[in-house]
C-alpha cells in the first residue's frame, strides 16, 4: 500500500490524530515530524506505520516544505495531508509550488480516490473537488472526523534535507507562549462557549470562561467583543477569525451576524442566549433562551455544578 504523508507541524494535536485516521483510509500513514521530542507513541497509537524525523529549525516554515517536498520525491506517496492551520497552509502552498502540483484547502472529508469535500462560503456551500495535477495535497479542518486509535509499530527514519538559501531568509528570533490554562484549543475543542458585545466588558468574560470550564470547553469571542477589547484576538470566531466545528457551540450575547456564522455554522448543536428575541442567532440555534445573559448564565452554571 502506498504511503500517505501526514505532516505534524509542531506537537501532536487532535487534528494530527484526525489526519492519521483519514490517512489510514487512503494508504499507509507516515508521519513527518520536525522535532525529535514529538510524542511518537501517540502517533503509533493512531496508526503511523512510519515516522520521519526531521531536525528542528529556527527558520520560519520554509524548511519544513523543503523536507516534505524531498520526501514526496523519494517516497512517491499517494497523498499529503496537513492541518488547515496557518502553518499547515503555508507548508501546503509552498509544497504545491515546489512540485507544480494542485492543492485543496479546508477539506472535511477525503474519499479513497482523493476527492475532497470542502465547506465554502460561511458553511453555506459544499464543494467536491479533486487535484488534477500531481498527487492530492489536502489540508483538513480540525474536528472533521473523530480520531480513532489503531495501534501500529512504526519504523522511525531520520531525514535531512539540504536547505536552500531561500529557506533561511526568515528567522524566528523569539517564541512566546501565552498561558491559556488548561482549556482545549479553540479549533479542536468539543465545546466552545463564546461571548459577544452583549457580555459588556472584559471583566464579565469571567462568566463566559466559567461556563466554558464547567462544560470542559474553549472560550471564543465575536469580533465586536474582540474589537472592544473584551477578549484577545486569537479567540475570535468567524469570517476573519477561527472556524470552529464543535459538538456544542454556546453563543452568549452574540447577535449572529453572517460573518460570525461563517466561523461556527457547522457546529453540531448550537445554543444561544440573547435578550433580543429577533436576534438572527436564534434562526440557527437548536436551543435559544431569550433573556439576560447575566441572569441566565449564572443560573445555568449553578445548575451544572448541582448536577455534577
Amino acid at each position: 500500500m502506498a504511503e500517505v504523508l501526514v505532516v505534524v507541524e509542531g506537537s501532536v494535536k487532535k487534528v494530527t490524530l484526525e489526519l492519521l485516521t483519514i490517512a489510514r483510509t487512503l494508504g499507509s500513514p507516515s508521519a513527518v515530524v520536525f522535532d525529535s521530542s514529538v510524542d511518537q507513541a501517540k502517533l503509533a497509537e493512531y496508526g503511523a506505520e512510519k515516522i520521519y524525523v526531521a531536525p528542528a529549525s529556527d527558520y520560519l516554515v520554509a524548511p519544513k516544505a523543503t523536507v516534505v517536498a524531498q520526501l514526496v520525491r523519494e517516497k512517491q506517496p499517494a497523498a499529503v495531508l496537513l492541518g488547515s492551520t496557518q502553518e499547515g497552509k503555508e507548508i501546503a502552498g509552498r509544497l504545491a509550488v515546489k512540485l507544480d502540483n494542485g492543492l485543496l484547502t479546508d477539506a472535511v472529508e477525503v474519499a479513497a480516490d482523493g476527492t475532497a469535500t470542502q465547506v465554502a462560503f460561511a458553511g453555506s456551500t459544499i464543494v467536491k473537488s479533486k487535484v488534477t495535477k500531481g498527487l492530492p495535497i489536502v489540508t483538513i479542518r480540525p474536528n472533521s472526523v473523530t480520531p480513532s486509535p489503531q495501534p501500529a509499530t512504526p519504523a522511525v527514519e531520520d531525514v535531512t534535507a539540504e536547505l536552500s538559501e531561500a529557506d533561511k531568509l526568515t528567522k524566528v528570533v523569539e517564541r512566546v507562549t501565552e498561558t491559556k490554562g488548561s482549556r482545549p484549543e479553540l479549533t479542536e475543542a468539543g465545546v466552545v462557549v463564546s461571548g459577544g458585545r452583549g457580555v459588556g466588558n472584559a471583566d464579565n468574560f469571567k462568566l463566559v470562561e466559567e461556563l466554558a470550564d464547567l462544560l470542559g470547553g474553549a472560550v471564543g469571542a465575536s469580533r465586536a467583543a474582540v474589537d472592544s477589547g473584551y477578549y484577545p484576538h486569537q479567540f475570535q470566531v468567524g469570517q476573519t477569525g477561527k472556524t470552529v466545528s464543535p459538538q456544542l457551540y454556546v453563543a452568549l450575547g452574540i447577535s449572529g451576524a453572517i460573518q460570525h456564522r461563517a466561523g461556527m455554522q457547522t457546529s453540531k448543536t448550537i445554543v444561544a442566549v440573547n435578550k433580543d428575541p429577533e436576534a438572527p442567532i436564534f434562526e440557527l440555534a437548536d436551543y435559544g433562551v431569550v433573556g439576560d445573559l447575566f441572569k441566565v448564565v449564572p443560573q445555568a452554571a449553578d445548575e451544572i455544578r448541582k448536577r455534577k
Partner: peptide
Amino acid sequence: AGTKITDEGDGGSQLV
C-alpha cells in the same frame, strides 16, 4: 431554528 424559550426566572435551569 429549534426550541426557543423566554426566560421567566428558570431559563438557565431549562438550558441545562
